[in-house]
């Protein structure tokens, strides 16, 4: 077993597990988007950033879903640096996909009150969940990434329905954008704000009495 420290608590984790898994085992909430249990780690969305303390006042931000546990690691999951970085990441993702309820909820939980980037909706955040689901769970490989840079898209080859596709619909089911569309009528500063304004703020059930505002949705229970 490997011993590491997450948020000041000593944790033992099996070799080969990731920091994210070790943290969730402890009940620490780390938001994720491209990570999905049962699929390989991809480390694309950077929502699950954590701070890895390296000593002598230095630290680095790492994607916890793709960070293997190591002996003596010191991890901070909710330091100011982490929170700030995550907020920027979610803002960037929202700028490319404001209609995703998953993203809007995440933004409201993080207390984001505006998107400072130019909004260019393209209904995909390139998290690759559908691609990995198709390849790893369905053993099919009908969809994949094409192009590069700003032209990168998830498509089928030549735009045809591929032979491998079994019409399982898994790619839509697992997509954080298709799955639930945000039903807000209008976006203000790229945010719906709908749920956030309507629901009253409450403390979450997990950490009763922490008295910290956790937004409209409370802590997500994984």
């Amino acid at each position: 077993m490997i011993e590491l420290t997450i948020d000041g608590t000593k944790v033992r984790a099996a070799p080969g597990t990731t920091v994210l898994e070790a943290a969730r085992e402890m009940g620490i909430v780390i938001p994720t988007l491209c990570y999905y249990p049962g699929l390989s780690s991809y480390g694309e969305c950077r929502v699950c950033l954590v701070e890895m303390v390296k000593g002598r006042g230095r630290s680095s931000l790492e994607a916890s879903c793709a960070l293997p546990v190591e002996q003596g690691q010191v991890i901070l999951t909710s330091s100011a640096k982490v929170k700030k970085a995550r907020r920027v990441v979610v803002e960037l993702l929202l700028a490319s996909c404001p209609s995703s309820k998953t993203l809007q909820c995440m933004a409201s939980n993080m207390g984001i009150n505006q998107v400072r980037f130019k909004i260019k909706p393209r209904e995909c955040i390139l998290c690759g969940r559908c691609v990995r689901y198709c390849k790893e769970q369905m053993r099919s490989g009908g969809i994949g990434f094409t192009g590069r840079g700003t032209a990168r898209r998830v498509t089928t080859a030549f735009g045809h329905t591929p032979e491998e596709c079994r019409n399982c619909g898994g790619c839509q089911w697992i997509c954080p954008v298709c799955e639930r569309a945000c039903t807000a009528d209008s976006l203000v500063n790229g945010l719906c704000g709908g749920c956030q304004n309507l629901a009253h703020v409450e403390t979450c059930e997990i950490c009763t009495g922490c008295s910290e505002s956790v937004g409209a949705h409370g802590h997500t229970v994984y």
Binding site: G141, G144, F145, T146, T155, A157, F158, P162
Partner: peptide, 12 residues
């Protein structure tokens, strides 16, 4: 290989 993988490389 799945066609999409070949297509992906060709477009990359």
């Amino acid at each position: 290989l799945p066609l999409i993988q070949v297509y992906g490389v060709a477009t990359f």
